[in-house]
Design a binder for these strands. Structure first.
Length: 205
DNA sequence: CGTTCGATGCACT
DNA sequence: GTGCATCGAACGT
């Protein structure tokens, strides 16, 4: 980790969710777990904003699952999707307003052997660029699960830090994998990054 | 290349 | 009982 690394302060998450989604590109998602540190540069994100957003988990009001979305910004919202994939979000804006940024892909920068080990345990045989490509894959690689739900992203074992990386040109388009709300261009990714999932990855510049 | 489809578990109706 | 902010293997071009 570079000497100028610093944790992203809680006030960062109190901005408009689209701003946070855009500005998270280039920041580093870090997990200090039992096996050691694993971390990756955020290269893809999506915004989910309020009960008016049909794709947001809070679109039908507060429930037991989505309650973290209504909590203070700067915490993690982690949940299980399709029965087998943990997805990690950063809660944004303000307490009482359900909004968050889904982290969809990382460029691995620390703990690569640990990531390879975690992915290989489930049969993964791809290259390092694919270790954290996709929201379910990156949580697997970093060892993120329910224990990190509602964790403080500034002080917890799971944090978001600024290691001084600058994201390259950023592209924007419709969100992936949702049924409703596909018309909103609330997905952001680093143009040309080989670690980005779906359309936009690789040559998708 | 492209598309289809099963795995898998929990929240919600 | 249904549907899901996924993934990757198994097909058909």
């Amino acid at each position: 980790m570079p000497t100028d690394a610093r944790v992203v302060p809680a006030r960062f998450y109190r901005q408009a969710t689209l701003t946070v989604a855009r500005e998270l590109l280039g920041k580093v998602l870090v997990h200090d777990g039992v096996g050691g540190r694993s971390a990756g540069i955020i290269v893809e994100s999506e915004a989910y904003v309020g009960e008016d957003d049909p794709a947001c988990h809070a679109s039908r009001g507060p429930t037991a699952r989505n309650l973290p979305l209504y909590g203070p910004p700067g915490r993690a919202y982690v949940y299980l999707n399709y029965g087998m994939h943990w997805l990690v979000n950063a809660v944004t804006e303000r307490e009482g307003k359900p909004a968050a940024v889904l982290v969809r892909a990382l460029e691995p920068v620390a703990g690569l052997p640990l990531m390879r080990e975690r992915r290989a345990a489930l049969g993964f045989k791809g290259n390092d660029e694919a270790l954290c490509r996709g929201p379910g894959n990156l949580t697997r690689a970093l060892g993120i699960s329910a224990v990190h739900n509602e964790g403080d992203l500034e002080t917890g074992a799971l944090r978001i830090e600024d290691w001084g990386y600058r994201a390259g040109p950023v592209r924007r388009g419709p969100r992936i994998g949702i049924r409703a709300g596909t018309e909103r261009p609330w997905r952001f990714w680093v143009a040309g990054s080989a670690c980005v999932s779906g359309k936009g990855g690789g040559s998708g510049g």
